[in-house]
């Protein structure tokens, strides 16, 4: 069985093996194999192409940009998504503006080990996809399955634009697949993860699995919930979302991020504006609480959306 984390390692291995332009740069990713072992053995297998970086997120991203201008395809690892804010300037002001300003694209992939795990605390748990999606010039993806972790990372390397690859740490070990896919939906297309008729849940990342569990729970009450896995939050597949809402008439957005200006807020805005007539009830959202992500497992479990809080929200939506 292949885990989500192993799929990420295998995608990088394949990218290195098949594309001489690819190299990896990040903290502890060389002989140590990465804080999560997402680059295990790759430094040995590809000498000189998997390089340890100093503790310098700004330099890591800046160097990736320079390398990309020179024709390389760097994949850089931020040890945790949370630390990417130390490299924010290079991502949003340099990588994201380069093509618009100079007509030279910036093909970098920035891997962000994202999202909460029990005991992670305020600085090792953040979901930052919305802030990166806010700036023009970035592609932001949030694979929720082993298959997508693999195929979307390989696709990201081949995209000429900067890609923020939000891989979810909660899925690293327990999410498994029999085999890796040969084909995949392209980045920019959402996926109906579960078909239904009574309400639509739009979600991404680890929340896909909480939402699917909630949908299963609601079948006991006779409800069939459709679950849309966004896969990429930018571009956002508005067509698939609207088509689903047209079938169900009800929308619940579920996101592990903070509520203010997040992906859920963007989906709500688009459906309210472009699909108002499709709605039988006011759309709703479930986000993490508007505080830093807490350390203690009990606090953390209450901070993030879970199958039971999602199911409770869906019941309220269905009763309107």
């Amino acid at each position: 069985m292949i885990t989500y984390l192993e799929a990420i390692r295998l995608a990088q291995q394949k990218a290195l093996a098949t594309d001489a332009r690819v190299f990896l740069y990040g903290q502890d990713i060389g002989s140590f194999g990465g804080a999560f072992k997402a680059t295990k053995n790759l430094a040995v297998e590809f000498p000189g192409r998997v390089l340890d970086a100093p503790l310098s997120e700004d330099a890591i991203i800046g160097m990736a940009i320079g390398a990309a201008i020179e024709g390389a395809r760097p994949i850089v690892e931020m040890q945790f998504a949370d630390f990417s804010t130390c490299g924010l300037n290079q991502i949003v002001n340099h990588a994201a503006t380069l093509f618009y300003r100079t007509n030279v694209p910036c093909p970098i992939v920035v891997r962000l080990p994202s999202g909460g795990t029990s005991g992670g605390g305020p600085f090792h748990s953040q979901s930052l996809e919305a802030i990166y999606a806010h700036w023009p010039g970035l592609v932001v993806v949030t694979p929720a399955t082993v298959e997508d972790a693999y195929s979307m990372l390989l696709e990201a390397v081949n995209i000429d634009d900067p890609v923020i690859f939000c891989e979810h740490k909660f899925l690293y070990y327990h999410l498994k697949a029999e085999k890796l896919p040969d084909t995949a939906l392209p980045i920019g297309k959402a996926r109906i993860a579960r078909a239904g008729r009574d309400a639509t849940i739009v979600t991404h990342g680890a929340m896909l699995h909480e939402s699917l569990a909630a949908a299963l729970e609601l079948t006991e009450d006779g409800y069939e919930i459709e679950v849309v896995d966004l896969r990429s939050v930018k571009p956002l597949d508005t067509d698939t979302i609207l088509a689903s809402v047209a079938r169900t008439g009800r929308l619940l957005c579920v996101s592990e991020e903070w509520p203010w200006g997040g992906v859920a807020a963007e989906v709500l805005a688009r459906v309210s504006s472009e699909g108002f007539g499709l709605l039988d009830a006011a759309p709703m959202r479930v986000n993490a609480k508007d505080t830093p992500v807490p350390y203690h497992p009990d606090l953390w479990a209450a901070h993030r959306p879970t199958a039971s809080t999602i199911a409770a929200a869906a019941r309220r939506l269905l009763q309107i």
Partner: peptide, 29 residues
């Protein structure tokens, strides 16, 4: 940029890692 003549951003210092990375890519090639 394609001619090796990079377009600065206003954020000072940003071009130092950028040129560093460009030189790393040249070395890798």
């Amino acid at each position: 940029p394609r001619d090796g003549y990079y377009a600065m951003i206003s954020h000072l210092g940003a071009m130092i890692p950028t040129v560093t990375g460009a030189l790393l890519a040249r070395r890798l090639k």
